[in-house]
C-alpha cells in the first residue's frame, strides 16, 4: 500500500501552522515507510523491531525492544493490523459516527502515556471505498495535526528496499 499526504500542524500559541508533504508505504507484516519530501526531507522506517529516524544531519536506529515508547507504537500498530485495536479497547475508547459522506472514527486514549500526548484522534473514512481520507490528531493544548491522504494505491508489490534500515 502506498499514498501521498499533506500534513498541517496548527500551533495555537503561535497562531501559526506548519505544512509538509510526503509519501507513505506499507507492507505486511509490520513494515512502514513514512517520508517527508517537502519542504525538508525526513524519514521514518518501521521494520520488525527496528525503527529508523533520520535526515541529512542526524540518523538514529532504535530497537523497540529497548525503547518503551517505540515499542508501544509498534504494538499498537500490530494490534490495528489485526483489527485488535477496535475489539481490544485497552488502548482507546472507540466511537464511530456517520459524518455524511464519511465515517468518523474517534479514538480517545485510555493509557497515561498516550493521554500525555493526545486528547483524541479523528479519522475520516470515505463511505464509497472505505478508504481513509483525513486524520486529525488533537493534543491536550489544542494544537492539532491534520493529515490529508491522496493517490492511495493498494495490493501492489513494493520494492523491499523501501523498508530497509540504512
Amino acid at each position: 500500500m502506498s499514498c501521498s499526504f499533506v500534513q498541517t500542524k496548527h500551533i495555537s500559541l503561535l497562531s501559526d501552522k506548519m505544512v509538509s508533504e510526503g509519501n507513505m508505504y506499507y507492507s505486511q507484516p509490520g513494515k512502514l515507510r513514512w517520508e517527508y519530501t517537502s519542504p525538508y526531507k525526513y524519514l521514518f522506517i518501521f521494520n520488525g523491531t527496528k525503527v529508523y529516524v533520520g535526515n541529512n544531519s542526524k540518523k538514529d536506529v532504535i530497537d523497540t525492544n529497548t525503547n518503551k515508547v517505540f515499542k508501544e507504537v509498534a504494538r499498537i500498530m500490530m494490534n490495528t493490523v489485526t483489527g485488535k485495536a477496535l475489539s481490544n479497547t485497552s488502548d482507546f475508547t472507540v466511537n464511530v459516527e456517520d459524518a455524511q459522506t464519511s465515517w468518523l472514527i474517534t479514538l480517545v486514549p485510555k493509557k497515561k502515556e498516550l493521554k500525555q500526548m493526545f486528547a483524541k484522534i479523528e479519522m475520516f473514512f470515505n463511505k464509497n471505498n472505505n478508504m481513509i481520507s483525513e486524520l486529525n490528531i488533537v493534543e491536550k493544548n489544542k494544537d492539532k495535526t491534520n493529515i490529508k491522504f491522496s493517490d492511495i494505491s493498494t495490493n501492489k508489490t513494493l520494492n523491499a528496499n523501501l523498508f530497509a534500515i540504512p
Binding site: 513514512w34 517527508y36 477496535l86 478508504m131 481513509i132 486524520l135
Partner: peptide
C-alpha cells in the same frame, strides 16, 4: 482495507515528525 489504514494511521501517531515541516 479500512482496518489496514487504521493500523497505519495509528502507527503514524508516533512518527508524524515535524522535521519535514515548514511554518
Amino acid at each position: 482495507i479500512c482496518l489496514l489504514f487504521l493500523s497505519l494511521l495509528l502507527s503514524f501517531i508516533g512518527v508524524n515528525a515535524q522535521n519535514g515541516m515548514s511554518e
